[in-house]
Design a protein around this nucleic acid. Structure first.
Lengths: 236, 236
DNA sequence: CGGATTGATTGGTAACACTATTTATGGCGG
DNA sequence: CCGCCATAAATAGTGTTACCAATCAATCCG
């Protein structure tokens, strides 16, 4: 958790951001700079810098005479990686995971298709290696290593898509995969079907078959979102 | 063009941001705060606030003794609406439009499917009204009104999806639609096929048919991306 | 009821001390 | 004479304080 608390305003953000993101302050609640100065024991400059960042994320607006007002969620920059992290860390975690998974379900199949069309042959071939390694570690029950490979697999496809916006989701997808396992939303042993599908995606990408890659990836992500719809951690 | 130049640091951002986003400063180029103070004729505080915002978008890093360094594009928050606007305004316009369209092609069909499942019957029905109005104005050749309706149509579907991240793309999709017409990347008269498809999406959503809505929307967005792939009238 | 007043709060400037980091220096051992 | 490491100096961001200007919601008064 080496979150960069290098500067003072980042330390203020690390407290204020998650609190606002978690809805601990009602929409319309207003802070004052002097209030923030006192609460955090920082100078005006630092408080202002923190507010500027929150403002650029759409979490608050700052106006003279009014103060720093919390905006409704609909105005937030919901794709900001920092905001996503704050929400994953706090109360909105499940809601955030759900919407992120719906996003994945939409984006990753498209990314797989593009990856099959673009990307160098070597890089596409490397994907098969990762998939096979996943099968090995999955069968062996090496969960930590498996997670790392899973993350690498999905990130690689997003990068191969050649679309910077898809690549930009890699970080977020990683956090979803990690968060999912650490909150027991995953079967403790990877399902054979899932492993088979990952290999299918990899081979289709390697062989330059966009439609096949897209379909296989769609199976992966919809299977996952079905699992998330079920109430709690899987019994049995 | 009412971009909020209310504050001084926003005016600095309005110049610095687009310049960096357009790649006018090579990766690794370093500014100094005192340099920015002089170039823009602002105080240190203002320069620092601008840098803080750029930093939170991943465009630069600020370190002691080193200065404010431009980061490689792979580190940028490519979903930040502000950054997207800057790129659409400048040199990276076509590239940005292309990646945004690929994103739309992935997201909007999924959003249409979700909209058919969720959302109140009244709101879903309203979509049909918009589609029919589009057909009327389209046939009549009222291009400005048609664009407004088109924007409203797509925004409405993204909102009805009930996924805040999809809704969060509404602003961006609007800018794509607007930018597309204002840069002559669209037929000057809406194609009858496109009008028919919009109506088909609307009816499927109203009738609660996710698969039909998804398929029809997919036809819309892939048709558009095909149009973008063609060389087209080179602007400028 | 409408327009002027006012005071709370952010916006902006300036000057200075602190701290981190790079670069240069110098001394020491080989 | 060379190489290496410790140390000092230079430099740029970081943080603090104080003060004044601009804004605007609320209030007061004609």
């Amino acid at each position: 958790m080496g979150t960069t608390h290098r500067t003072l305003h980042n330390r203020v953000l690390a407290v204020l951001g998650p609190a606002i993101a978690a809805g601990e302050y009602s929409v319309g609640h207003t802070f004052t700079l002097s209030g923030l100065e006192q609460d955090f024991g920082v100078s005006r400059t630092v408080a202002r810098e923190a507010v500027r960042v929150l403002e650029s994320m759409g979490l608050v607006v700052s106006r003279p005479r009014t103060g720093v007002k919390v905006r409704p969620q609909t105005q937030w920059s919901v794709f900001d990686p920092q905001l996503i992290r704050w929400r994953l860390a706090g109360a909105g975690r499940m809601a955030q995971l759900r919407s992120l998974n719906e996003l994945r379900a939409a984006v990753e199949p498209a990314a797989a298709a593009l990856a099959a069309e673009r990307g160098s042959p070597e890089e596409r071939a490397r994907l098969v290696d990762v998939a096979e390694e996943m099968t090995r570690t999955g069968d062996a029950g090496l969960l930590d290593t498996f997670l790392e490979l899973d993350v690498a697999f999905h990130r690689h496809i997003l990068d191969l898509s050649g679309n910077e916006m898809f690549s930009g989701l890699a970080e977020v997808v990683s956090e979803v995969l990690i968060g999912r396992t650490s909150y027991d939303l995953m079967p403790h042993r990877p399902r054979p079907e899932a492993l088979r599908l990952h290999t299918a995606v990899a081979r289709a990408v390697r062989d330059g078959l966009p439609d096949v890659a897209e379909a296989a990836m769609r199976s992966i992500v919809t299977e996952v979102s079905d699992a998330l719809k079920e109430p709690g951690p899987d019994p049995r």
